[in-house]
Simulated scan of single mutants.
Amino acid sequence: MEQDNNSSLTEPQEVFTPIPQARGASGGVRWLGLGWDLIKERFWMWVGVIIIYFIVSLIISTILGFIPLIGPIISPFITTVLATGLIAIAHQQYETQRMDVDNLFFGFYNKRYLSIMGAYGISFLILLFGIILAVIISGAAMMDVIYAASSDYSEEIIAEMMADNTSGFTLFIIIIAIFGTISTAAYWFVPALVLVNGYKALPAVKASLSAVKINLAGGFFFFILLLFILVVSIIPFGLGLLITIPLSYTAMYGSYRDVFYHHNVGNQGNNGGIGGNGGNGTISLNKTAESNIGKLVS
C-alpha cells in the first residue's frame, strides 16, 4: 500500500522482536479486538474462507480415514497444518489489507509443515504425558467407578462410589488441566512464528512458552472471553461459529502481533507499548513497517 511521507511519520511502525513483550491483563481484550477488526474488514471473505477450510478438512479426514492405523494418526497433523493457513491469511490482511484464499495452504510451502507438525507433536506429547500421569496417580479410583458403571451395579452404589472417590476425580481433573494448559501454551504462538518468522519446531515452542509465561493474565482473560463468545455463537443453530471460529484465529494472530512486535518504534522511547502507552493503546491496521513474510504478501 502506497503512503506519502507525512503518513509514514505518524502511522505506527512495527518491528519483530524475538523477546516476547508482557502486555498485562488487558492484552486479552485487545487481542480479541484486533481479531474482530480483521474479521469485520473482510466479513464475507472470512465466512468464505472458513467454509472452504471446513470442506477441505472434511475431505482430508475422510480420505485419511480409509487408511488403517496410520490414517487417523496422520489426519490431525495434516489438518493442523491446514489450520495455520488461517493465520497466514490474517497476517497477509494485516500487512497488505489483501486476502488470498490460496494462502490457506501456505503451511505446506517450503517444508514449513515439518516444523508445524513437530511443534504440534511436542504439544500433543505434553498432553499425553499429563493423561498418563493422571491415570497413574488417580486411575485406580476411576477404574472402579467405570467398572461399576459398565456392570449391573445400581445407581445408588455407583453414586456412593463416586462420592467416596471425589478426591481421585478432582486430582485427575487438576492434572489434566495443568498439562492441557502447558500443551496449549506450547503451541499458541507457534503457527505465526513458523509461517512469518521461519522458526523451527523446538525454538517456536520455547518462544511460545516464554510468551505465555509473561502474559498469563492476558491469556487467561483471552480464553475466558473467547470461550464465552464461542458458547453464545452456538445458540443461533451454530451459525455464529462461521464468525467466531475465524475470530479465534485472527485474535490469536493479534496476540502474536502484540507480544512479538515493538510498536511505534522511534516515537515511544523504550516503552515498548502500543501507541506509546505501554501496551494500553490500539494497533492500527495501516502500517509502514516492512513486511516480514516475503512471498506471503508478494
Rank of each mutant, 00 (worst) to 15 (best):
W46I: 03
D102H: 11
D100Y: 02
H262Q: 15
M162G: 13
I235W: 05
E14N: 10
I131K: 00
W46Y: 07
D164T: 08
N277M: 10
M117F: 03
S248L: 09
T250P: 08
L216K: 08
P68R: 05
D4N: 15
V297M: 06
Q21F: 07
V135Q: 14
V297P: 00
V212Q: 06
V135S: 12
I87C: 00
F179T: 04
W188D: 07
P76T: 09
Q93M: 05
L9G: 10
I157Q: 14
P68A: 07
K40F: 00
E95W: 05
I293Q: 01
L216S: 00
L216V: 13
I174V: 12
Q13S: 12
T282M: 10
I70V: 15
L58I: 15
Y109K: 03
L127G: 15
W36F: 11
M99E: 01
S115Q: 04
L64N: 06
T84N: 03
A163M: 13
H262L: 15
L133K: 01
A22P: 02
S151K: 09
L125C: 09
K111N: 07
T282L: 10
F237I: 15
I157P: 01
K213I: 06
R257F: 12
E160H: 11
Y113Q: 05
T10V: 15
I73Q: 08
T184W: 14
E2H: 14
L104S: 09
R257Y: 10
E156V: 12
P203R: 09
Y109I: 00
